[in-house]
Design a protein around this nucleic acid. Structure first.
Lengths: 190, 190
DNA sequence: GACAATGTAACGAACGTTCGGTAATATGTC
DNA sequence: GACATATTACCGAACGTTCGTTACATTGTC
């Protein structure tokens, strides 16, 4: 299975874009069909178990993206902590289109999501959190300090996305990311 | 109109609870009927224009609640700033059931919300923001500092709600609210 | 000719909504 | 106070539409 990761991933990316912007209930098969250019039945050929399977594939895809482009670079001790953090900020900004796109972690957890999806999402969060904690400790924070800083950083990412969406102020997200950048540089000086 | 605010508001509160936990698309008339104990057609008697009207009534209700219980007390200069802030924290914690309930500002802005609803929501946000800014300036922050602090405070409220929901850790929200409390007390000492 | 990928057409179920009519409650009149 | 009359609140049953899903036919590829 999954030999043509290339073409398949652009399909999944299209699905991802819909799910993150409309939520699960707000995403209809008709809409997915429109966007992907595939007929409904073609979508069902790729995802025999239907809508929930499509979401599952998206979440799995995103999970891999996060692992590869956020977690792994954060833990790469061959790169200087400062560089690792600024790289992450860059990746995160791109991932959310400078705050123009929503976060699946937020969007999906309304109502009742299936257990395995919830689990993967909370695993993703924890992986990100732990990588940040490790980085924090690396630059001299105590463990409690690092935990608190890491948690707050992700909170600010999620919160800033909401506020930017709410106010249509396209600089909100970037502004607060830069602020986190400066905050991190303060750690290096002490 | 609106003489029996009492009974009518409990109905709206029930609708509010559903909308905030399921989002707009995730909320079905059948569900609203179940929760309120009213038949669908009875709901349409109260809200002739249907689901969207129900949401509109909820948003209006919440808007008034915010004005009355959050904004107005924040601006009441007869009370000491420290007390005003801690009162707000208390109100906010109750409003979100210690982080167990979602924020409409987050939940509704998926997909396409109607313009008047979006406007009311962003007005609510701005009212809250401005009240906080004024309080910040009152305790000695410069205007840019106050703006930044206020914005970040609301961001943390929204972000902490998401993370608490994601991790099912019931102390996340409270923890970060206490942290904001301490932060504010720092302002008073300088 | 096998098999994966796409298309056409339809399915039952659930959606939001509407209609006609009944119970309950105010309002007016004597 | 008694009684007729609006007005409001509620309900059961159905409406047309869209939902997610499936059966079956057609195309392309090796």
């Amino acid at each position: 299975m999954a030999q043509q990761t290339n073409e398949n991933s652009t399909l999944i990316e299209a699905l991802f874009d819909i799910f993150r912007n409309h939520g699960y209930e707000g995403t209809t098969i008709s809409l997915l069909s429109e966007i992907t250019g595939l007929q409904k039945s073609s979508l069902y050929h790729h995802f025999p178990k239907g809508k929930e399977d499509m979401l599952r594939a998206v979440v799995k895809f995103v999970s891999a993206q996060i692992q590869q482009h956020i977690i792994a670079p954060l833990l790469d001790t061959q790169v200087k902590p400062e560089k690792r953090f600024s790289n992450m900020i860059k990746t995160v900004k791109a991932f959310y289109s400078d705050g123009g796109k929503n976060c699946l972690l937020n969007v999906l957890n309304l109502g009742e999501a299936k257990a395995d999806i919830k689990k993967r999402q909370s695993d993703d969060y924890n992986a990100w959190l732990n990588a940040l904690i490790q980085l924090g400790e690396e630059v001299g924070l105590s463990q409690p300090e690092a935990i608190n800083w890491a948690e707050r950083f992700i909170i600010i990412v999620e919160g800033a996305l909401i506020i930017q969406r709410l106010t249509s102020n396209k600089q909100t997200f970037e502004k607060h990311m830069e602020q986190e950048q400066k905050q991190f540089q303060q750690f290096l000086k002490s």
